[in-house]
Design a protein around this nucleic acid. Structure first.
Length: 728
DNA sequence: CGGATGGTTCTTTTT
DNA sequence: GAACCATCCG
């Protein structure tokens, strides 16, 4: 029992209670920074240490990354290989692979992401001859998603439809479902819905999984939606060994169907539930906590909760007024540079923003300052065009009914199959009720094809047959490598992507590497599970290498993370709270306030809030901007206000050697030793690609190098930070 | 058919 | 500023 005893070390009495609670319902209301993750991992390890079989435990987290980390942490204390830790969506997909048969789907079903759904909606709208100006596909896609979350079937949707948009959306919804079904495809909402259907209507399946998982834990319960709520209750109904954790003040996903009431009514759902509040904050300096507390206190619809800390006040929160977004970005860079100069590491600093578009000016500024950064999920890796192109072939092989993937692969790279040919194929498919893949097999019967396209189609079919054979024979990595080769993909990218070709090719190489990595991690190379893995990665999953870089991300992506320094940009009316929320009313404003709360409580030591007086939105300079109302909600005594004109120039100097950061931090920032540089030397920069050294300037730590990059133009970089690699 | 060109229209947050 | 489109020409 030594292992079990060590699991209780260094816990507060409340934390200990939560960890040692074994049977029956448990609600852990965990304030920001109160050690929630610690409690969850310790508790799961505690269960295993007390003889509960790991495979009978299911833990649901918000991202796959959180799942992986949690599993790893537990694994350090007890054997955790057989523990199921995953997101709702991954969990659903995993169960459906084994159980979906009664719903008349193939177990190799495709998973369609948001972009795929939009494409299907657009295609369906076109088929139905619907004017996409009056009925925008994006709005229809959103309406369909909302309907699914509210358990509204296409038929019910149709019955309720009032007005042109709703009526047309209803027609599209009906046809969309049909199209998904015949493609053997599920969208994100379907994953949860189909699992719900199975558990409700197929007693055998229900019993199997309810018996299998005797202990359930759901993290971030405040952000579960109605279907997730129902799934949890279906699975826990028999044994009621259900632990949920969360914080209503950190609910930031109501816009996609999450319902805070799920967590608020837990005690009513389970009157005998044990409720444990974790209110002591171990993360933030007291001033930061005071500010966050004061802001969130303005929310009316709220369960009262008080966070406290023994930590010292720390610095005041810095509020900076900038002129423009460029000015703001420079201020952010300067703050990060100062953090490093004071001995901090880049990986302990983060810049948060409300919308993705705001990352651009920041990226430019950090690039210019040659400070390495990581952007979490701007264009998510797996949504890149070249990646989706390659994956389309794999998806098609895994699920030949997947028409969307076929259409994508059909003429990428261009092989002489144009819109007219596609129309012939589609109308033949429509009249015969065949999938496009099946139409290819009967290409001889398709009327109206000219010899050129017909030959191209035959070649395409032969390619698919070849790829399918290889898929059956070898690992996914080999398959991708073969595809890149067989498609002449490098050549294709060079033609299609122009100056970005190299970057695209690198992405494709990265895909190959990730497939190999998957083979290692999963210990197998099953194509279907690889594609599932790919489809369900979240933006946050791809973030967080071991490298020392400053993090740039949306507040939503910051959930669950913590940093010494947090810079929050665009603290303006219209951005935070966002204009759309201002327009949609009080509840939306409260969610924006929770976002602000989440942002503030990520910080351990230092918070800087920046607002700009002007900002270009959609290429246009907007009207003057007001500082965010949330800034006014912070008590002035914990604030320090500045404007950039007294403060921001001159630009940050590289710290002098004697004022240098601690050796370990410096080493981390500097990375590998700089290569010997001289004019004419060919070098590679991680972001700018290949270039040639023009000139060296200065000496010592501040030494700079001017490089003319093939694609990124000429740039002046600090040698120490630029991480140039000499190319011979 | 495919690539290039120029015009138009957006931008909240994401599993 | 970029992503998406419609249109035109080789």
């Amino acid at each position: 029992m030594d292992a079990a005893a060590s699991l209780l070390r260094e816990l507060t009495p409340e934390q200990r209670q939560a960890v040692t609670h074994v049977t029956g319902p448990l609600l852990v209301l965990a304030g920001a920074g109160s050690g929630k993750t610690l409690v969850i991992t310790r508790r799961l390890a505690y269960l295993v240490a007390h003889g509960i079989a790991a495979e009978s435990i299911l833990a649901v987290t918000f991202t796959n990354k959180a799942a992986r980390e949690m599993k790893e942490r537990i694994g350090r204390q007890v054997p955790a290989d057989r523990l199921w830790v995953s997101t709702f969506h991954s969990f659903a997909a995993r169960v459906l692979r084994r159980e979906i048969h009664p719903l008349d789907y193939p177990s190799s079903f495709s998973i369609y992401d948001e972009a795929d759904r939009a494409a299907v909606v657009a295609a369906v709208a076109r088929e139905l001859g619907i004017d996409t100006d009056l009925v925008p596909p994006a709005a229809v896609a959103a309406a369909i998603s909302r309907a699914k979350n509210d358990l509204v079937s296409p038929r019910e949707f149709e019955d309720r439809a009032v007005g042109h948009f709703a009526e047309q959306a209803a027609r599209i919804y009906v046809r969309y479902e049909h199209s998904m079904k015949s493609a053997g495809a599920l969208d994100f909402d379907d994953l949860l819905l189909k699992l719900r259907e199975l558990l409700r209507e197929h007693a055998g399946v229900r019993e199997r999984w309810c018996r299998r998982f005797e202990y359930l834990l759901v993290d971030e319960y405040q952000d579960t939606n109605a279907i997730q709520y129902e799934l949890v209750h279906l699975l826990a109904a028999a044994h009621r060994n259900l632990c949920v954790t969360g914080d209503p003040d950190q609910a930031i996903y109501t816009w996609r169907g999450a319902d805070i009431r799920n967590i608020l009514r837990f005690e009513r759902d389970f009157p005998d539930a044990r409720v444990i509040k974790l209110e002591r904050n171990f993360r933030s300096a007291a001033n930061i906590l005071k500010a966050a507390d004061a802001v969130i206190a303005h929310n009316v619809h709220r369960k009262l909760k008080r966070l406290y800390t023994d930590a010292p006040d720390g610095a005041r929160l810095l509020v900076i007024g900038a002129f423009s977004e460029a000015d703001e970005a420079r201020a952010a860079v300067r703050l990060v540079a100062e953090h490093v100069a004071e001995g901090g590491r880049l990986r302990d600093a983060a810049v948060f923003f409300r919308t993705n578009a705001l990352s651009r000016s920041l990226e430019r500024a950090f690039l210019e300052a040659a400070i390495p950064y990581d952007v979490v999920g701007t264009v998510a890796f797996f949504e890149r065009r070249e990646i989706k192109d390659v994956l389309a072939y794999l998806r098609l092989v895994a699920n030949p009914a997947d028409d969307l993937s076929l259409l994508r692969a059909l003429n990428t790279p261009p092989r002489g199959i144009g819109a007219r040919t596609v129309e012939h194929l589609r109308s033949f498919a429509m009249t015969t009720g065949l999938t496009l893949r099946a139409v290819l097999d009967r290409i001889e019967d398709v009327p109206g094809l000219r010899p050129g396209p017909r030959r191209a189609l035959l070649a395409f079919r032969a390619l698919l047959v070849d790829v399918a054979a290889r898929a059956a024979a070898g690992p996914v990595g080999d398959l991708i490598a073969h595809l890149i080769d067989a498609l002449d993909f490098a050549d294709h990218l060079a033609r299609q992507a122009g100056p970005r070709a190299e970057e695209c090719l690198e992405n494709v190489q990265e895909l190959l590497a990730s497939a190999r990595e998957f083979e290692r991690r999963a210990g197998g190379s099953d194509l279907v599970s690889y594609l599932e893995d790919v489809a369900l990665v979240s933006q946050a999953d791809l973030y967080g290498g071991t490298e020392d870089r400053v993090s740039l991300m949306t507040i939503h992506n910051a959930k669950g993370l913590e940093f010494d320094l947090v810079v929050l940009v665009a603290c303006e009316e219209g951005m935070l709270p966002h204009i759309r929320s201002i327009q949609s009313g009080a509840d939306a404003i409260e969610e924006e306030r929770r976002l602000c709360y989440v942002a503030l409580t990520r910080a351990r030591r230092r918070v800087c809030l920046i607002h700009a007086a002007t900002r270009t939105v959609a290429g246009l300079l907007g009207s003057p901007r007001m500082p965010s109302r949330f800034l006014n909600e912070i008590p002035p005594e914990v604030l320090e206000c500045r404007s950039t004109h007294r403060w921001c120039d001159p630009l940050p100097e590289t710290p002098a050697p004697d004022a240098a950061p601690a050796p370990d931090a410096r080493a981390a920032v500097a990375g590998p030793p700089a290569p010997e540089l001289e004019p004419g030397q060919l070098v590679r920069h991680e972001l700018f690609g290949l270039g040639r050294v023009v000139r060296l300037e200065g000496r010592g730590r501040g030494r700079k190098v001017r490089v003319r990059f093939h694609t990124a133009g000429e740039r002046l970089l600090v040698v120490e930070y630029a991480r140039l690699v000499a190319v011979t």
